[in-house]
Design a protein around this nucleic acid. Structure first.
Lengths: 237, 237
DNA sequence: GTGCAAACGATCGTATACAATTTAGCCATC
DNA sequence: GATGGCTAAATTGTATACGATCGTTTGCAC
C-alpha cells in the first residue's frame, strides 16, 4: 500500500535526503494523473504541503526536472511537464528502441520464480481492469507500467532500469495528454501474450509482440497540437 | 575553446540557474579525467572553488549524481563516482543495447552536410591522436566521445541523446579506472569505418561495426576487483 | 476610453545561519 | 600496546533571510 514508484526494486536505496520522499510523492501523483500536465508547482506551495522548507521542495522539483516530469522555467517556476507531440513521439521512439533489447536480456536471465512473479502482476492488473472507480483506474495505470518496469528489473541492468523508469513515467504523461480511448492503460492481453512467448522461449516473437504492443499504445494517441487549450501554451512552451 | 561537454548541441538551452555552469565544469573535469574516481567533492570546497555558496555547489553535485558521475552518500558527502566492475559491464551493455538503434535512426535522417560534419570530427580526432601532451590526450578523450554523441544528435531523438550523454561520460570514468592500454580513446579507425558504412548506406554493416567497436573498447578493460584499494571500498561500496 | 508607464506583489535565485550527524583525535582503561 | 569510549572539529541536512526578476495592476496622460 505504501511502496512508491520504485517499488519494483527489491533493495530500497535509502538515498541521501528527505527530498527524495517528496520527489517520489509528486512523481506518483503525476504518474497516476492526479496532477495534470501544466499544473504549476510553486516551491512555497510544495514546501507547505509537505511541511518542509523551500530548500527541500526546490530540490525535489529539480530532481523531477531531470526525469523530465516537470519543467522548470527560469524565474517563472516549475510546472508538471506538458510534453509536446514531438516529445511524445521521441519518448515512444525511445521505447521502441530499447524495450526489445531489454526483453531479450530479461528473457535470457529469467528464472521460474520471476515468471511466476510476472504472471501474478498480470492477474493483479486484470483484476484492476474489471474494477470501477478512480482509485482502481490509478492503480491500473501504475500496474500497467510495472509490467515493463519489472521486465527491466529482471534484465539485471540497473541503468536500463532507471531509463525505463523515466520512459514509463513520461509515457503516462503523454497518454494523459493525448490518449483518446477511455482505456487508460495499454492492452492487458498483450502483456500476457508477451509473457507466454517468453515462457516458451520464442524471443523473436516476444520482441515482435512488444513492438506491436508499443505501437498499439502510440496508435491510441492523437498527436495533433492542442487548439483551444493550446492558445496560451502555444506561446509558453 | 570554451564550449563545454554539450558542445554538440547546436541550440544552447540556457537553463535555469548558474549551478549548471558548475555542473558542466565539474563534469568536464571528470570526463577529461582531471578528477580521479573516488575523489571527495566537499560542498564547501566546490563552492569556494567557484566562488558561490554551498547551495549552488550542492545543487551541482546533486545534478551530477543523477547522471551517475558522482555518488552522494548520506551525511558523508559527494565523491567522484567509482563504478564497480559490475556497473561498468552494465554501462557497456546499455551501449550495446542502444547504439545500434541510434545508429539506424541517425543513418535514416542524416544529411550530406551532417556526414561532412562527422568527417571533420574524425579529422580533428586523428590530429589529436598524433599530438603529444596531457592537453591533447584530454581533448582526444572528449573528441572520441563526441563521435558517438554526434550520432545521437543526428538521430533527432533528444531523449536518446541525453541518455548517450550519460553513457559516454560514465564510460570515460570506467576507462579511467579499468582501462589497460595507454590508448585512452577507442580505435579511431573504427569510427571512420562506421562513417564509411553509413555513407554507402550499408546499415547492417554499420551496426555490426558499431557493436564490434564497443566490444573492442570493453575488451581493453580489466574488470577485476581492485585488490589493494579494495580493502576499504569492499565494505563501503 | 484607450494606451503606456511606473509601482506593487509574488515567486524564484542565492547566500547565510543553525541543527544534526559523522569523523577524528585523545585519554583512560584493560 | 591495543581497545574502548568520550569529546571536539568538520561536514552535511535543513531552514530562514535577502536580493533579483517577472507578471500584474493601477494610475495618469492623451
Amino acid at each position: 500500500m505504501k511502496p512508491t514508484a520504485t517499488a519494483v526494486h527489491t533493495t530500497e536505496d535509502s538515498t541521501d535526503t528527505g527530498a527524495q520522499q517528496i520527489r517520489d510523492a509528486i512523481r506518483d501523483a503525476i504518474v497516476e494523473r492526479r496532477l495534470s500536465p501544466g499544473t504549476k508547482l510553486s516551491e512555497s506551495d510544495v514546501g507547505n504541503l509537505f511541511n518542509v522548507s523551500r530548500t527541500l521542495a526546490r530540490a525535489a522539483l529539480q530532481a523531477l526536472s531531470y526525469e523530465g516530469l516537470v519543467s522548470v522555467e527560469k524565474n517563472r517556476g516549475a510546472f508538471v511537464a506538458y510534453p509536446s507531440p514531438d516529445e511524445a513521439r521521441q519518448i515512444f521512439a525511445a521505447r521502441r528502441l530499447v524495450e526489445p533489447g531489454i526483453l531479450r536480456e530479461a528473457a535470457a536471465r529469467i528464472t521460474p520464480s520471476q515468471i511466476q512473479h510476472l504472471k501474478q502482476l498480470l492477474i493483479a492488473e486484470g483484476r484492476l481492469m474489471s474494477e470501477r472507480g478512480q482509485m482502481a483506474r490509478r492503480a491500473e495505470i501504475k500496474a500497467s507500467g510495472d509490467f515493463h518496469l519489472t521486465l527491466a528489473a529482471i534484465s539485471g541492468n540497473a541503468i536500463m532500469q532507471r531509463f525505463m523508469d523515466e520512459l514509463v513515467a513520461r509515457s503516462s504523461l503523454v497518454i494523459a495528454l493525448y490518449g483518446q480511448s477511455t482505456i487508460s492503460s495499454c492492452g492487458h492481453s498483450e502483456h500476457g501474450d508477451i509473457v507466454a512467448a517468453i515462457e516458451r522461449n520464442d524471443l523473436d516473437e516476444a520482441c515482435r509482440l512488444m513492438l506491436h504492443h508499443i505501437a498499439h499504445i502510440e496508435a491510441d494517441l492523437d498527436l495533433r497540437e492542442r487548439k483551444s487549450v493550446g492558445l496560451k501554451e502555444a506561446f509558453e512552451g
